[in-house]
Every structure is written in structure tokens, then in C-alpha cells.
Design a protein around this nucleic acid. Structure first.
Length: 260
DNA sequence: ATTGTGGCCTGCCCGC
DNA sequence: TGCGGGCAGGCCACAA
């Protein structure tokens, strides 16, 4: 599902549309608009304009529109970005591999004949205008040790729950969280505030390393642990049977032998 | 404020 | 073999 690595791939793909004039916006599914946004408002903000740049904060993709407004794209669990008929990634875990035209939620058509399309079978994504970035924590790919320490300090919530909290750390989803904690050897159920400074430091480095690795591999589902997230799955590091339970409201897999 | 829970959405998997 | 109940999780509303 789209976590930080996927959205980063979407951002790079979206850059292909920078500088091209928008001719028309099609909204087969106006329900996809969030925060009171209407088709007329979105059309007015985009038609005749160009994207100046695409940025990413966590799992949110931002398109800077000339004139100062910002398009916000969220992809939920099964959303894909398609530019000029080309998808950013081959496959998405938990998303259907086939393509049904009915899953197209937004189409931004450029006057040159190309387009930027959001395809989302399960409709858990959405489109906003000028999204409030104040509700997002530091981006996980660039978070500093001090910022991570502040995000975890004093909390009795499970470590994993804090990592998934987008207002504390932006961009970590369920698969990345499990992969990071597995690689750092940390128990997802540990109270977030119980980590020693050296553990926070290790965790911060692991977050960066795992994200860089998953971006390079082409998706959050390409992690070493991810392939073992199944019944009878075993720890790729020591071969122990993995434990499955619910932590932070999410299905969680971890190694009972080396994660403490 | 912090933490936990349930619902939304819908295609697909597994067990009957 | 066909069918239908769970399941998947990002995000939000709401409760304690």
C-alpha cells in the first residue's frame, strides 16, 4: 500500500507534469474531494495553470500550482498515480493488479494531450486544496534524532503506534513500521517513552536506512520481513517463527527472539 | 492532552 | 464448484 516509498515514486513520476498547462479537470467521483472542496473550486484552481513543483510530506503528495495554491493528493491504501498513461510502480500490495476504468477518481488533463490521473479502487484516498501541513510531523526520511526523540518522549503508547501517528512522524505506514522495528531489534509493544537515547539513535538510523532501501527497491512491500508476513512466517534473521498480533490497531508481525 | 476503538471503502481470499 | 463472511490499512471521528 502507498507509504512513503510509494508516494516518493509518485512524486518523481508527477514531476513529468511540471510546467504543462492544465486544460481540464475531470472528476468521475466528486466524493473523492475532501475538506469542502468542490469540482468547481478545483477546476478554477487548476485550469489554465501549471504545476511549478511536486513535493512530498510523509504520505501526502503536494503539487505547487503557479499562483500559489497547492494541490494535495492522498492515496489511502490502494491509490496509484498515473501520468501520461504510465504508472509509477508495477504492483501494489493489497491492490488489484488489473485495471478497471471505474477506479479512476481524478483526471487532470493537460492541453498537450497528456494527463495526471489518480486511480484508487477502494476510494480511501482523496484530493484537497491547500492542505494543512501543520498536522503532520517531521518527514520520516529526513527526521533527526532529536525530532524522533521528541516524538517518542514521555509516551506510554506502544512504540509502533507512535511511529504510525502521522502527526508525530510523517510517512511511516504499517509495513514500514514492522520492517523498521524488526531491523532495529525493537519490540513494537514497548512503551514509546521507554527507549534509551542509544535506542532512539539506532531507531532513527534504521528508519532512514529502511526507507532509502525501500525507495530503491521500489515499494514498501519489498522489505525483508514483508515476505514473511503470513502464517508460518519465519524471521529472516534468525529463523524463529514470527509472532502476529494487533499493536496500535494494526496487524503486526515481529520476531520474539531478537526484538526487545 | 493522550490513547484506544470503530467505521469508512471495496476487491479478494479462504473456508464452507 | 460457488458463495459470502472476513480481511487488508490510511485516515478520521469519537469515546474514555
Amino acid at each position: 500500500m502507498p507509504e512513503l516509498p510509494e508516494v516518493e515514486a509518485y512524486r518523481r513520476l508527477a514531476e513529468r507534469s511540471v510546467g504543462r498547462v492544465v486544460g481540464r479537470v475531470e472528476l468521475p467521483d466528486p466524493w473523492f474531494l475532501k475538506g469542502g472542496l468542490t469540482p468547481a473550486m478545483l477546476g478554477a484552481a487548476l485550469t489554465g495553470h501549471r504545476f511549478a513543483a511536486f513535493r512530498r510530506v510523509g504520505k501526502l503528495l503536494l503539487g505547487d500550482i503557479d499562483g500559489g495554491r497547492r494541490l494535495g493528493l492522498r492515496f489511502g491504501m490502494t491509490g496509484t498515480l498515473v501520468v501520461d498513461g504510465r504508472a509509477a510502480l508495477d504492483g501494489l500490495l493489497y491492490a488489484p493488479a488489473r485495471h478497471d476504468p471505474a477506479w479512476e477518481r481524478v483526471r487532470i488533463a493537460f492541453v498537450d494531450g497528456g494527463s495526471l490521473v489518480v486511480r484508487d479502487p477502494r476510494r480511501l484516498g482523496g484530493v484537497t486544496l491547500d492542505p494543512d501541513l501543520g498536522r503532520l510531523g517531521p518527514d520520516a526520511a529526513a527526521i533527526t534524532g532529536d525530532e524522533l526523540a521528541a516524538a517518542l518522549a514521555g509516551s506510554t503508547a506502544p512504540l509502533k503506534a507512535r511511529l504510525l501517528d502521522q502527526s508525530r512522524v510523517a510517512g511511516v505506514g504499517n509495513l514500514v513500521a514492522d520492517e523498521v522495528l524488526w531491523k532495529a531489534g525493537l519490540d513494537p509493544r514497548r512503551p514509546a517513552g521507554s527507549l534509551a537515547p542509544t535506542e532512539v539513535h539506532l531507531l532513527c538510523g534504521t528508519v532512514h536506512a529502511v526507507i532509502a532501501d525501500l525507495v530503491a527497491r521500489g515499494g514498501s512491500h519489498r522489505g525483508d520481513l514483508t515476505g514473511e508476513r503470513r502464517r508460518d512466517g519465519r524471521c529472516p534473521q534468525d529463523g524463529a517463527p514470527l509472532t502476529r498480533s494487533t499493536v496500535g490497531g494494526r496487524t503486526t508481525w515481529w520476531c520474539p527472539v531478537h526484538q526487545h
